[in-house]
């Protein structure tokens, strides 16, 4: 993959390629997200490391998160998340509907450990399982979901409906919901 991409650049075909995935999935409540997760943490994104798939056709990114608080699961100072999409040697793939991260971002994430030999987790529920931590106009910490590219349907009826986490929620209220769901 790397050789192929390097060859491509050498040929002067300097492409920055993006891939958009459109996803339709069932809507998940905070309780469901928490129950499907083995770890729920807050933290700051400190590193993004893109990697190619074995066949060179997909790109993913290892997101290193410096943990600030653990709301569910074993204590950790750092977790590594395998996120869908990324940019590698001029080729980028974007997975619409998947959780996206940027360096320095403060987040709350619902994680599930992958069965990989390397200690990696994935975000539960695509973009539903990651919220950005921001301050509102009054200076309060709020968790803000970003469901761009994700089509949500109700699990039982499969009828389209509003996202359970469709807007900002105070971080303290979210923490309370998560911990109530996992007691």
């Amino acid at each position: 993959m790397i050789a192929r991409l390097a060859g491509m650049v050498a040929l002067g075909v300097l492409l920055a390629a993006g891939a958009a995935h459109a996803s339709t999935m069932v809507a998940m409540s905070v309780e469901e997200l928490a129950q499907r997760s083995d770890r729920v943490v807050t933290g700051r994104v400190v590193a993004l490391e893109p990697r190619a798939s074995e066949d060179g056709k997909r790109i993913s990114t290892v997101v290193t998160l410096q943990v600030e608080e653990v709301w569910k699961g074993a204590p950790a100072q750092e977790v590594r998340i395998l996120a869908l999409g990324g940019t590698l040697e001029g080729i980028s793939q974007v997975v619409t509907g998947a959780a996206s991260f940027r360096e320095g971002e403060e987040v709350v994430v619902f994680l599930r450990r992958l069965r990989s030999a390397e200690p990696l987790s994935e975000v539960v529920g695509m973009a539903q399982g990651k919220l950005s931590v921001e301050r509102d106009d009054e200076g309060n910490l709020v968790a803000v979901p970003s469901l761009k590219g994700l089509d949500l349907v109700d699990r039982g009826t499969m009828v389209p409906g509003p996202a359970p986490l469709g807007g900002p929620i105070p971080v303290a209220a979210l923490q309370e919901k998560v911990q109530a769901a996992t007691r």
Binding site: S53, R58, S60, L114, R115, E118, L120
Partner: peptide, 8 residues
């Protein structure tokens, strides 16, 4: 499996 570490 190594594929679990790179989405392949």
């Amino acid at each position: 499996d190594p594929c679990l570490s790179n989405r392949s």
